[in-house]
């Protein structure tokens, strides 16, 4: 009886879930801490940076003498080939990193949830069409879309964000469809329809409300993966311009000097990793907390 209640609880109270996870899981705490740090840096970044102009990509006047310095007290992360303070660039870059992934995940989540839920609820030709469309997009890798958009639209944030949204939303659509199919068969949906509740309301109040929690947890984990992909796209020069304060770009700037000046690529790389890890830990431990049966089996073996 309790196991069933625990599962119910997690659907009804996300905060309860988070509170429980905090108490029980060291991974959750570690992940939340990492994410918390990154978010704070993103918010405060430009103010914390010792050389804010460097952070935004402006080449300093005394570039020649500054360039290529290894980490030292004056420049804790060293300077890049153009003389810009790497620490400042990394700190300012946090903002762009989080903005990109927040945009991508929130839009593709919203789109995917809606498409999946509609497919499951309306059934028939709507279901077939929506599933077909999401399968097509599922087959397109982000890189290819990014390439096409880059050629068509030129450089910019929109290339990265749009190409990632287009390639990620079908995953949420599929996930949402699977959960929604189960929810649609629930008697509470039937009761609502018998009472005359309009279709759209049923879709939001009953279907989406219950499909959201499990897919949301997956989305949190995805924030990390999206960051890696976004950085990769920027690294390849398919997204943001070469001076933009983005971690992927900074890694790219330092790539040519990877042997002589490894710190340029290394520091932003570590930050990308840490952020992705943070989200991954949070999402993973939340998922584990949601599924009580899995937890018990862990105890069996360990």
């Amino acid at each position: 009886m309790s196991a069933i209640r625990a599962r119910f609880n997690s659907a009804a109270g996300f905060l309860d879930l988070a509170k429980r996870a905090w108490k029980k899981s060291a991974r959750f705490r570690a992940g939340t801490l990492l994410v918390g740090i990154m978010v704070s840096i993103a918010v405060l970044g430009p103010h914390l940076a010792p050389y804010p102009l460097d952070g935004w990509g402006v080449v300093p006047r005394n570039a020649a003498e500054r360039a290529g310095k290894p980490p030292c007290p004056e420049f804790p992360f060293g300077t890049d080939s153009l003389g810009r303070d790497v620490l400042s660039r990394v700190l300012v870059g946090a903002r762009l990193a989080l903005v990109q992934i927040a945009l991508v995940v929130s839009v593709s989540l919203a789109l995917g949830l809606l498409v999946g839920a509609c497919a499951a609820y309306y059934k028939g030709p709507v279901e077939a069409l929506l599933n077909y469309v999401s399968e097509i997009f599922l087959a397109l890798p982000a890189m290819v879309i990014a390439l096409a958009l880059r050629l068509a639209l030129g450089q910019g944030l929109h290339v990265v964000v749009v190409s990632l949204i287009l390639s990620w939303w079908p995953w949420y659509a599929r996930s949402s469809y699977v959960y929604a199919r189960a929810v649609v068969e629930m008697e509470y949906v039937l009761l609502a329809r018998l009472a005359g509740v309009p279709g759209r309301t049923v879709l939001f109040r009953h279907v989406l409300a219950n499909v959201l929690p499990p897919v949301l947890v997956q989305a949190i984990t995805d924030l990390g993966s999206v960051l890696l992909e976004a950085s990769a796209i920027n690294f390849l020069g398919l997204g943001l311009p070469p001076d933009a304060p983005d971690w992927g770009i900074i890694v790219q700037n330092g790539f040519r000097y990877i042997v002589s000046m490894p710190w340029i690529s290394m520091f932003p790389g570590v930050f990308i990793l840490a952020t992705a890890l943070g989200f991954s830990l949070v999402g993973d431990s939340l998922r584990e907390e949601m599924d009580p049966k899995m937890r018990r089996r862990w105890k069996l073996w360990f």
């Binding site: 009804a12 008697e187 009761l191 018998l194 005359g196 409300a209």
Partner: peptide
Amino acid sequence: RWKVTRRIGYVPQDPFRALNPRL
């Protein structure tokens, strides 16, 4: 049909499936 079915009170068999856990 809801105009007719709303005059009916239906109690389904399984309470776990008949109550929306988010409401």
